[in-house]
Design a protein around this nucleic acid. Structure first.
Lengths: 342, 342
DNA sequence: CTGTTAGCGCGTTCAT
DNA sequence: ATGAACGCGCTAACAG
């Protein structure tokens, strides 16, 4: 027996011989219903394969139980990892996730946010594609939004990220500690907080050590494997070839390594490399990578927790700080892609 | 000036001095509205930062412009890649994606599907966590569903996958062509079509060559890095150590490689390894992996296209085949993890 | 071409 | 404890 259309609350009510209000009460547990009637309702719902219509419910309640997640690049393994953490806590709390991939394009990101609002998501998590002022209005309107990983410049609101400055600092100090002096950096667009901060950490470490940061060994911009590759070629063809490099992004790191391979520059013998983000597969790399690891899933968990806490406060009318910033500590993992000089 | 609540269509109508029907017509382009009135409406909408309420619209139209995507494991890089393809075609068609991670757990998957229905998604894409009969009712009820990658046994409906049998066949033939005879296999749960088919391909190739498939060199079950590791330890400790192995899953492959490393079994000198799924980072592996590559993003694109085509047909009342099966061809990429015997 | 209006399915009063 | 009636914001059918 096939039903043409989904069962509605009325169908359930009819079958159970009660009113829709009773069905609603049973489903949501909002009122006390006599045990046997409740049982009847549940049986009816079951037999009709009834699924409460979230759409109708949302229209009525003003809440959708959906949160939007906007990321800049789903093929960057970092983000799926974060999402898995976010998804975990969201689904536990009965929330679903609408996932949007902005493709590193602020315009697309803007459109995505717009459709997210159309769908009346209760809140959003975003790792921005570029620093822009487009979020200001959201924050001013107090729309529940939590940034993670990449945070807009001058943003005043809730956010979760790694201490990227410290990550850059440690990575570079490690290189310096191995007696390197000609240290290059391959960094992503400086409009992104993550990369800007890591670059700052790099500069700080260099300055501490009294080392010069030459323009030609400081390649900033781009985010892709290809840009890492291009930068790599340039860097490794410099008359004064750097002996060490810090790549602030895992994709650019892959590109850089390809360049080194092509040019026959052995790592770590002729070039020490330290990167960002650790994955299950890095242990299979040759050489095994020295990297700065982020608590990736934890970023997702914390960001979602922050958002849900906020939503709950909103629901209960209680006051909540909407500018809670969580900074997680990264961890330098020294392996074999970095070696001492001399 | 901050608005407490979102602007509604009525607000726009009022501000523009027209009726709600006119606003609706302008927004959706469903009727001809005089140019100047349309202009006024657009201006009003703009100034009020109006976002049409998809929730209300859905309630009315019965369509949500959202499709659900259920995957078994978001931390398996294969799936985000597929999703990026699916997302690409969905967003072009004005659809959003609700992403659900089932964690390889059929029960969780069932729950996720249920909430997806509650949210009245127009259709779903699913790579199932286990073969079960739970989908039959969906298909019988003709709910728009397209399976990808992992397809339920005996499923009669739309699906997109790689020719896994052929993938397993080619991988094994390659090994055999290199004169290996003691060939082992590390495979995922045989209830999953992908792994079952790859295993079948393996058996076929072995049979073709008149090679025996010994029970002890045929490790089936599990999906994780850890299970690949365990199987690897067992296999490499066999009195008659295999000289080659086919891992049907990228995570198990990582585990196997770890086991080989720990046991000091050099690849490819003492063990040739061929895996499944290619990624940007495999070129950095040592040794570079011989693998069977799937057209990953294409799987996502095709699956979503199939689904959207179906939805359009449904909308237009035209007939559409709801059991279109697309099988994509894999590609063996020979690199350095496999070597000839003797 | 434009306005009026009846629901879509649900949660929520307000009666009983 | 339970039921009837209303309305959330929107679309579509109809009237003008």
């Amino acid at each position: 027996m096939v039903k043409k259309t989904d069962a509605t609350m009325r169908d359930v009510a009819r079958l159970a011989g009660v009113s829709v209000a009773t069905v609603s009460a049973v489903i949501n547990g909002t009122a006390t219903v006599s045990a046997q009637r409740a049982q009847k309702v549940r049986a009816a719902a079951e037999s009709l394969d009834y699924h409460a219509d979230q759409i109708a419910r949302s229209l009525k309640t003003g809440r959708s139980n959906v949160v939007g997640v906007v990321i800049p690049d789903i093929t960057n393994a970092f983000y799926p990892e974060v999402i898995s953490g976010a998804e975990e806590v969201a689904s536990q709390a009965g929330y679903s996730l609408i996932l949007c991939n902005a493709n590193e394009d602020p315009r697309q990101e803007q459109r995505l946010l717009s459709t997210l609002f159309s769908h009346r998501v209760d809140g959003v998590l975003v790792a921005c594609s570029d620093s822009s002022t487009a979020y200001d209005s959201l924050v001013r309107r107090r729309f529940p939004i939590v940034f993670f990983d990449r945070i807009p410049q001058g943003f005043r609101g809730s956010a979760v990220s790694t201490d990227n400055f410290s990550g850059g600092l440690e990575a570079t100090r490690h290189l310096i500690g191995m007696r390197h002096t000609r240290i290059a950096i391959v960094a992503g667009r400086s409009t992104l907080s993550t990369h800007a901060d890591r670059l700052e950490g790099f500069r700080k470490a260099m300055q501490e050590a009294g080392l010069p940061v030459r323009d030609e060994s400081c390649r900033v911009g781009g985010l892709t494997i290809d840009s890492g590759y291009e930068f790599g070629l340039e860097l490794l063809r410099l008359p004064e070839q750097p002996t060490a490099v810090f790549c602030t992004n895992n994709k650019m790191l892959l590109g850089f390594l390809r360049a080194a391979r092509e040019l026959g520059v052995a790592c770590p013998e002729r070039i020490s490399v330290v990167g960002f983000d650790d994955y299950a597969w890095t242990e299979n790399f040759h050489p095994q990578l020295t990297i700065v690891a982020q608590p990736t899933r934890e970023i997702g968990r914390q960001a979602m927790t922050l958002l849900l806490t906020r939503l709950q406060a909103l629901r209960e009318g209680s006051r909540s700080h909407d500018n809670h910033v969580i900074v997680l500590q990264p961890e330098l993992r020294v392996r074999q892609s970095t070696a001492g000089l001399l």
